[in-house]
Write a protein that binds this DNA or RNA. Structure first.
Length: 921
RNA sequence: GGGCCGGUAGCUCAGGGGUUAGAGCACACGCUUGAUAAGCGUGGGGUCGAAGGUUCAAAUCCUUCUCGGCCCA
């Protein structure tokens, strides 16, 4: 006989909330609602007067589409701001962009080239206007893309470093350095194109294979306090740029290198590195006899003289041996000739020993007219004939008896991207901020500020600390057009820059009105009056790192965003910013305010491809966040970013995203079940805590414990822990256990039954907790879920941390359930055998008999309905002399409505007592 | 080449001297067909990047190597 169909009498979950998310279509609709309601403004209002959490957004460069690094970075920022907001803080988010600088300048130039136009023919004002328009275009593009990610920020009023107000702030900050005497004009070797007569950036240089002249040059040793026998011998240097020999000022040796004194066939004694004796012998065409080893330490304090010393003055000065870590024995002689004007290593080593550049080569690449050797030579230094074996340099050296070899040499050499001509390193005047000036130096202040800053992860402290301790003075100047000018006037006679507060205020005021275009000769004349000819108006612009170093002043302090405060609680960027923004902000703020502009720094690693390799367009292994959003949705990308260990490098790829999408589905389905299970809920149904059965109290205990753990994770910015706490709770405690156990009550108990009301009360608490906890992660889905149940109560994002009582925590109860769940596992192991033997299908058909020697366990489980918890027909747990666990098919009738196998099933209705009462009573 | 950092199941992550290294997902098999393009259960899967060393005992501490990353040269 067929059982009656009781399905219509069962209270199954009911909801319109779709299982399939359709995020790519749904998310933009939710976004539009937020925008229409101005959710960001609502948030500010909702949190007004609350303790503030000041996050300061680092400005991405306004160039190109959002890439995966931007996406990760902004999702993390958003998660910080949203979790802080959830915890009740007033956490404003002012997004910003870095708008000046070479890459933009370059793009605009590129457009000129395409039109066969020359940048130099375009008025500077016009050129800058185009740069400004270009930057604004990408700001708009990136802003839309970041909005689509669900980032909650003040998109109506972002900060741009090219705003006139920002440009005025940057000038004002620069002048603070000037007024406090923290600027000086020094020199530094830069890539220089003698053809274009301009400095070049690294990005403007390309390498080509060319043939140069390599020469070996002998310098006579005149003093050697640690090895007197060397006096009269010759130290041999090797170079592929003969034109630098007229500017030589010393010789570098490797402190770890062993040298040898060798005798040539014609009886000269020369000093070279031991591993290079053969190579040198071949080059100079003479057998070499090693006379003695010379330790590097013997060279300390030794001195040579220049082959052209007879010219006097500069050339007559002694040239010291200097220890240089960069000296290798890969090629050459193991002794490196030092021309501080023309090499970075040379410059740094000589500077450390008080030897300064001499500026012998001018902008057009020719030796200056008064230079004693080759002054007035018409060829510039990159001219091959000047450097050739039969050219003037080699000829003079040969005549002086110093040229041991001169041959062609093929190598890769930097060229100008624009003119394709060779470039040189050349010292040029630059503006610096000194790191070690005064009693309380900038370096000391910065080091102290680092010690006072909180780092997440803490290793960041190490990294920036090592950099700050070792870094050279800060070079502020660039010889460029698109940027904030260094607004200084230099006295042509004294070389000092003008410090005049009144003038400086006028400069700042003018910049507020006109921005960087204010810095014209006309303005200089207006400021200086008849003294204008006495001063040189500086036309260099500021390194964009200085711009970004000033964002704290503009955004936190200027009052343009009244919701902000100085200093920031947090800066959050990729670990590359230890050298970048973290440091520029630190130095700028220490120089002007004596402390860092932030209390804490959070860094993230880089996103690699699926196999852990760096993404690059040429490798074709990039993952485009815009595509991910189109395919999966922003919430998937967010869940990904907040699931990985972002403090290290981490990966993204198809398999990973599919895994994230699976996690998402689990969470979504749980919400769907909650919504269905809570259908028709009304507040009258709520049951007081003291009437809750044990399982309900245990779930509340778990909610309370997890609430604490989640808060701790959010405060520590440990989002990967935050999300896994939630998914583990949903998967293990709810889905696989409590929800499974309580299906019977939810589906079959009478709606008024206290047991069912208790469970629905807990489901309601769980719903409120989960929607809010997940709101900072799955921003769109949380809103969709919330709106499905509470369509008229505003955004989920306005809500605060769920009210969960610490009193719900119950260690005894937790132990009890740990034991019960352990037992459940053991029983299921046995039941699976029964099932494989086809004795039972559903575990509801099984009967469990347990004996144990542990009376304490029986006592601990007293008051818990084990049959209910294990979803079996019945459980007998008794004390005995042996441990045993047997399972068998229960000899009980099945209730046709609740499917449980029970003793009180009436054959005529096939209903158990409970179900009979619900259906017929 | 230098500074800093990392490598635990197919994937995302726990564990940071002490039983047989864990979780979730994925996979396989099964149950259910009343969360159903869902839910539940069981299972297989790891020389903890490699090699040395310290120790009674190493995924864990040390050294070297290797692979990868960021920043510099």
């Amino acid at each position: 006989m067929n059982a009656p169909d009781y399905r219509p009498t069962v209270f199954l979950p009911k909801t319109d909330f779709p299982m399939k998310a359709g995020l790519p279509e749904r998310e933009p609709q939710i976004l539009a609602k937020w925008q229409a309601a101005d959710l960001y403004a609502q948030l500010r209002e909702a949190r007004a007067g609350r303790p503030k959490f000041i996050f300061h957004d680092g400005p991405p460069y306004a160039n190109g589409d959002m890439h995966i690094g931007h996406a990760l970075n902004h999702i993390l920022k958003d998660a910080v701001v949203r979790t802080q907001t959830l915890m009740g803080k007033d956490a404003p988010y002012i997004p910003g962009w870095d708008c000046h600088g070479l890459p933009i300048e370059w793009k605009v130039e590129e457009a000129y080239r395409a039109k066969k136009q020359n940048k130099d023919d375009v008025p500077a004002v016009e050129f800058r206007a185009e740069c400004r328009a270009y930057a604004q275009h990408w700001v708009n593009v990136q802003r839309d893309q970041l909005k689509r990610l669900g980032i909650s920020a003040n998109w109506e009023k972002p900060y741009l470093t090219m705003d006139f107000q920002a440009e005025a702030t940057i000038v004002s900050e620069l002048l603070k350095f000037a007024e406090s005497g923290q600027l000086y004009r020094g020199a530094k070797p830069v890539m220089w194109s003698p053809v274009e007569k301009t400095a070049l950036a690294d990005a403007e240089v390309e390498y080509h294979d060319i043939t140069s002249t390599q020469i070996d040059v002998a310098f006579e040793i005149t003093e050697a306090p640690n090895a007197p026998e060397l006096v009269g011998a010759h130290a041999v240097i090797w170079t592929t740029t003969p034109w630098t020999t007229p500017v030589n000022q010393g010789i570098a040796y490797g402190p770890e290198v062993t040298y040898q004194l060798c005798r040539t066939q014609d009886g000269h004694r020369i000093l070279i590195a031991a591993p290079l004796v053969e190579a040198v012998s071949a080059r100079i065409g003479s057998a070499l006899t090693v006379e003695q080893d010379v330790a590097a330490s013997a060279l300390a304090g030794a001195v040579v003289r220049h082959p052209m010393h007879q010219l006097g003055d500069f050339f007559a000065r002694p040239r010291p041996f200097l220890p240089g870590d960069f000296v290798t024995t890969d090629a050459g002689t193991g002794l490196v000739h030092m021309a501080p004007d023309h090499g970075e290593d040379d410059f740094a080593l000589c500077k450390a020993h008080g030897i300064n550049p001499v500026f012998a080569v001018e902008g057009d690449g020719r030796y200056r007219a008064d230079w004693l050797w080759l002054g007035g030579e018409s060829k510039n230094v990159i001219n091959p004939t000047l450097n050739a074996p039969d050219g003037p340099i080699c000829n003079d050296l040969r005549a002086a008896g110093a040229l041991l070899s001169a041959e062609p040499f093929a190598h890769s050499y930097p060229h100008s991207w624009r003119s394709k001509k060779k470039v040189i390193f050349r010292c040029t005047p630059q503006w610096f901020v000194p790191m070690d000036q005064g009693e309380h130096t900038l370096r000391q202040k910065a080091v102290a500020a680092i010690a006072a800053t909180q780092f997440t992860p803490d290793k960041g402290r190490n990294r920036i600390g090592a950099m700050v301790e070792g870094r050279p003075d800060w070079v502020l100047s660039r010889q460029r057009a698109w940027g904030v000018p260094i607004t200084l006037f230099v006295d042509r006679k004294s070389g000092d820059y003008l410090v005049d507060k009144t003038i400086n205020e006028k400069i700042i005021a003018r910049f507020r009105e006109q921005g960087v275009d204010a810095w014209t000769p006309e303005f200089a004349a207006e400021l200086l009056g008849d003294k204008v000819d006495q001063y040189e108006q500086i036309t260099d612009i500021l390194d964009v790192w200085f711009d970004s170093g000033c964002t704290h002043a503009f955004v936190l302090e200027s009052g343009r965003w009244p919701e902000m405060q100085w200093p920031a609680d947090l800066y959050l960027e990729g670990s590359d910013q230890h050298r970048g923004w973290f440091q520029s902000s630190l130095l700028e703020s220490c120089g002007t305010r004596g402390r860092a502009p932030y209390n804490a720094i959070l860094t993230h690693g880089f996103t690699m491809d699926a196999s852990g390799r760096k993404m690059s367009k040429s490798e074709g292994n990039t993952v485009n966040p815009l595509d991910v959003m189109k395919t999966y949705g922003a919430d998937i990308l967010r869940l990904w970013a907040l699931s990985v260990d972002f403090t290290e490098d981490h990966r993204i790829g198809d398999e990973i995203l599919k895994g994230v999408a699976d996690h998402y589905r689990k969470l979504r389905n749980t919400f769907r079940y909650l919504l269905g299970a809570l259908e028709g809920w009304s507040e009258e149904e709520r049951l007081p805590v003291d009437q809750m059965p044990a399982l309900e109290r245990w779930v509340m205990h778990r909610l309370s414990v997890i609430s604490d753990e989640l808060k701790a994770a959010a405060v520590a910015y440990d989002f990967n822990r935050y999300t896994s706490l939630i998914t583990d709770f949903v998967q293990n405690d709810l889905s696989a256990f409590a929800m499974d156990v309580r299906k019977d009550s939810l589906y079959c108990d009478a709606p008024t039954a206290p047991a069912r009301r208790a469970w629905r009360t807990v489901l309601d608490l769980t719903f409120h907790a989960l929607t809010r906890w997940l709101a900072p992660v799955m921003v769109f889905t949380a809103e969709e879920v919330w709106g499905t149940r509470h369509p008229d109560s505003g955004s989920v994002h306005l809500l605060e941390w769920p009210e969960i009582d610490a009193d719900w925590q119950d260690a005894v109860l937790d132990k009890q359930f740990m034991l019960a769940r352990k037992l459940r596992e053991e029983v299921y192991l046995k039941l699976e055998e029964l099932r494989r033997a086809k004795t039972v299908g559903s575990f509801l058909e099984a009967s469990v008999t347990i004996t144990t020697t542990h009376a304490d366990r029986i006592a601990a489980l007293a008051g818990i309905d084990l049959a209910e918890l294990l979803l079996v027909a019945d459980v007998s747990l008794t004390h005995a002399d042996t441990e045993s666990l047997t399972v068998e098919k229960a000899d009980l009738a099945k209730c046709a409505r609740c499917w449980r196998h029970l003793p009180d099933v009436k054959p005529e209705t096939e209903l158990c007592g409970r179900c009979d009462a619900v259906v017929n009573g």
